[in-house]
C-alpha cells in the first residue's frame, strides 16, 4: 500500500503539492507513481526563473521502464529545483515526499486549484489505476 500523506494535495497525473508558509508550492511525484515507474535513472529539471502555464510540461522523470512528464499544476514561476536529483534520481524512489521533492513554484496569481485532489480522492484514483 503506497503512502498518501493527508496534508498534501494531488493531481490526476500523480504529482503532489505542498503549500509552503511563504505562499510557494513544492511539488513531487506520489509514492504510488514512483512505485509504478520503478527505479528512476534520470530526472530532467526546468531552469529556475522559467514561467509555466498551468498544465505545461516542466520536468521529466525517467525510469528503467518508462519516461513520464511532470506537469505544472498551476500557472507559476520556478523558484527552486532539487539539483540533487541530477546525481541521485533514486531519492524519488526512496523518499518521494521528502528528499525526492522535484521543484518549488511561485503561483503567478491566486490560482484556481479546484482541479486538485484531496488525499482521500487521490487514494480512490490510485486504487483504480
Amino acid at each position: 500500500m503506497s503512502k498518501i500523506p493527508e496534508d498534501l494535495k494531488y493531481t490526476r497525473s500523480h504529482e503532489w503539492l505542498k503549500s509552503m508558509p511563504d505562499g510557494s508550492i513544492e511539488i513531487g511525484i506520489s509514492d504510488h507513481a514512483q512505485e509504478a515507474l520503478g527505479d528512476l535513472v534520470f530526472v530532467e529539471l526546468p531552469e529556475v526563473g522559467r514561467s509555466l502555464a498551468a498544465g505545461e510540461t516542466c520536468a521529466v522523470v525517467e525510469s528503467v521502464k518508462a519516461a513520464s512528464d511532470i506537469y505544472a499544476p498551476v500557472a507559476a514561476t520556478v523558484i527552486a529545483i532539487n539539483a540533487q536529483l541530477a546525481e541521485a534520481p533514486e531519492l524519488i524512489n526512496q523518499d518521494p515526499y521528502g528528499r525526492g521533492w522535484i521543484m518549488r513554484l511561485k503561483p503567478t496569481a491566486q490560482g484556481d486549484d479546484s482541479a486538485l485532489l484531496s488525499a482521500h480522492d487521490y487514494q480512490v484514483l490510485a486504487a483504480e489505476a
Binding site: G38, D39, V41, V64
Partner: peptide
C-alpha cells in the same frame, strides 16, 4: 513480477 524490490 517486473521486480521484487529495486530492479537495479
Amino acid at each position: 513480477p517486473v521486480a521484487y524490490g529495486s530492479q537495479i
